[in-house]
Amino acid sequence: MANPSRSNFFAQFDLPVAFAIDVGVLEQRYRAQQQHWHPDRFATASATEQEHSLQQTTLVNEAWQTLRDPLSRATYLLQWIGYQPTPEESGDHDTDFLMQVMAEREALEEIDVTAGSALSQLEALRQQMEQEIAHAFSEIAALFAGIQEFNPADRQRWQRVSQLIDQQRYRQRFLEQVDQIEEQQLYGR
């Protein structure tokens, strides 16, 4: 849930509220703020200043971590807009996606991890998944183009973004599994 008492993460870095942000600029500003606020710089300052620097650094870290990752950035933007899916909306399934999921799961399970070809098969699955992720992000970016405050007319748009976010999470977990199997292959643990 959005926490209204927290300041706007985009404003923290003097960035416009948008999904498409310049990550290079974000990184630069993040580092500059770390340099400025880091509690180690205040180790000999008064207790109040120390407390303030700690709060600022914590806030900077939170904002940075939320914005640097496109998925958490998208999630945060939906909160900022004020969209929350109704139970009906979240139960609304994307059949194409579900079919794809089943096929990919099957492909992963069918890989014989003892076979010499396992690594290349895993790699192929990984590439496919990474392509899907990139594709979904461009759809998310298009949906977020020119965003404003919540408007009931846009509800369908945000519902689709919310759905895409869930799908991306699934794909990330899938990639983690691929990683794990690969590690077992490479290092036999």
Binding site: Q34, Q35, H38, D40, R41, A43, T44
Partner: peptide, 16 residues
Amino acid sequence: IHAGVMGGSKAAAVLV
């Protein structure tokens, strides 16, 4: 070096 930063030295990098 880290101790130096905490002691007020500006010469070194901060650590995250």
